[in-house]
Design a protein around this nucleic acid. Structure first.
Lengths: 255, 255
DNA sequence: GCAAAAGTGTTAGAAGTACACCCATGA
DNA sequence: TCATGGGTGTACTTCTAACACTTTTGC
């Protein structure tokens, strides 16, 4: 179904274009910024930009992203691309900005890489990319992406130089999430497992909003949120007082 | 400098492409949603889609927008396009969303129009457009656009069917402004003249947020906003008690 | 003097902020 | 018993919402 455990995963991905008889639109791409929370900090999923022309094969990373097909909606393209790079399906992605600087391909190695990756026979001058973002928790399944695909979760705080203008894209994705979370904090529950402790939720909020939150006031607020239900279940196997679990119920009114 | 008082304004605009020796990118466009306040309601600026193939010459309107040039940033393209369609310069536009449905050109008349407008010799299948929005007051100068250019300010509430998916784009622009104004209400001052009355500001807020605001509470809030300064000057020539003018001071902290 | 819009204060409840100590658990 | 993180209450401030009458002006 999709390329698993393949050392040259993304070349195989490119071949899908041809196998599917799809014409690519050589001017428009989508890129996906997957933000994941590992319990401590925000991470971003990057994939190996393999066989990048002119440089060694180590340390070149980029966002999962690719040119769109001619007969494909942007949202569909984002889903497809993410699936090709990670095997994930039905990830809820939000479009947040188009990046169209005329000099996005200023590194010639990036152009060469693109042309090879997509088996194009003409020079690419310029690509406008539509960037999507998504929030998810890094669980065992997500961690597995690092084996089956040439992907890596990297902490936002230690992100190396990525290909193209992908560092800018990541920075704006985070800012966009920050803004959206002010209007609708229920977004943030996507970063957590189904059952989570108050401390985990607080850590997520502190991370995204870049602030520290008073513990007592936080509990008060938690109690007033009708969309969060306390469970009887508690943590297990911790070497201190066990924390209560909560769950998020989408149906209830936000706040 | 720019095409003024020209009955075929937009054909002349297209010729600029050639005159400037610019290659257009046939896959990516920008569209501008100018939202203007006339003292009563929100209006949107539309331009005549002249000589649209297959139909009469009346009643075909679209947003000011056009394909981008190969060596031009998106933000620059938005500025250029707006200038070509309206003569306006240095309008502060915000990118808000890319529209890339594969069926955006489903009306064949729209494709034909595009190819003619840009003097292209091949068929256009698909365009992704990057949409921008801007807020401004409709003063005498803005009203003049309706003469010099084939442009019209139309009330949002009475907007006819526009070309392409431009009605969707307008609707999402308004929603985007609504959201942004919650986070930063100083945006809304762009809809007002330099000097404005409390009632004008209130009307704008009510319009954008789709609510009604209590007059007394509004005055209290106004007094607490450090970015709004009351002036000594008052209205003149009104047939009732003259209202005090206020001005907005960007430098001060928002509220 | 009247029509038309401007402007003005108080109160009650809700929400947010600041702050320090005891509790449960495993090692 | 101690180290670790979990959990709790109160007082104060700020914001919000509801509500009705007087003032100024031109005609």
């Amino acid at each position: 179904m999709h390329p698993k455990s393949n050392k040259k995963g993304d070349n195989l991905i490119a071949n899908i274009d041809i196998a599917m008889n799809q014409t690519v639109n050589p001017y428009v791409s989508v890129d996906c910024v997957l933000l994941g929370f590992d319990g401590e900090q925000l991470n971003v999923l990057v994939v190996r930009q393999s066989e990048k022309g002119g440089e060694g094969s180590t340390g070149n990373y980029k966002l999962p992203g690719s040119l769109i097909y001619m007969d494909e909606n942007l949202d569909e393209a984002a889903q497809r691309v993410l699936h090709q790079f990670t095997g994930l399906v039905q990830v809820n992605m939000m479009q947040f900005k188009a990046f169209g600087g005329a000099d996005r391909l200023k590194d010639p190695a990036d152009s060469v890489w693109l042309e090879r990756f997509h088996h194009l026979d003409h020079h690419i001058e310029r690509i406008v990319t539509i960037a999507y973002t998504s929030l998810l928790r890094i669980d065992r399944r997500m961690k597995k992406l690092e084996e089956g695909y040439e992907a890596r979760w990297m902490p936002l705080s230690e992100l190396p130089k990525l290909a193209f203008d992908h560092n800018d894209i990541v920075a704006e994705a985070v800012e966009s999430v920050r803004q959206k979370a002010i209007l609708d904090c229920t977004l943030l529950f996507n970063l957590l497992p189904r059952k989570f402790t108050a401390a985990q939720l607080r850590t997520v909020m502190e991370n995204v909003q870049g602030i520290t939150i008073d513990v007592k006031n936080f509990h008060k607020k938690l109690a007033s949120m009708s969309c969060v239900k306390p469970l009887e279940e508690k943590e297990d196997g911790v070497k201190h007082r066990a924390a209560r679990y909560y769950k998020f119920m989408r149906s209830k009114k936000n706040v």
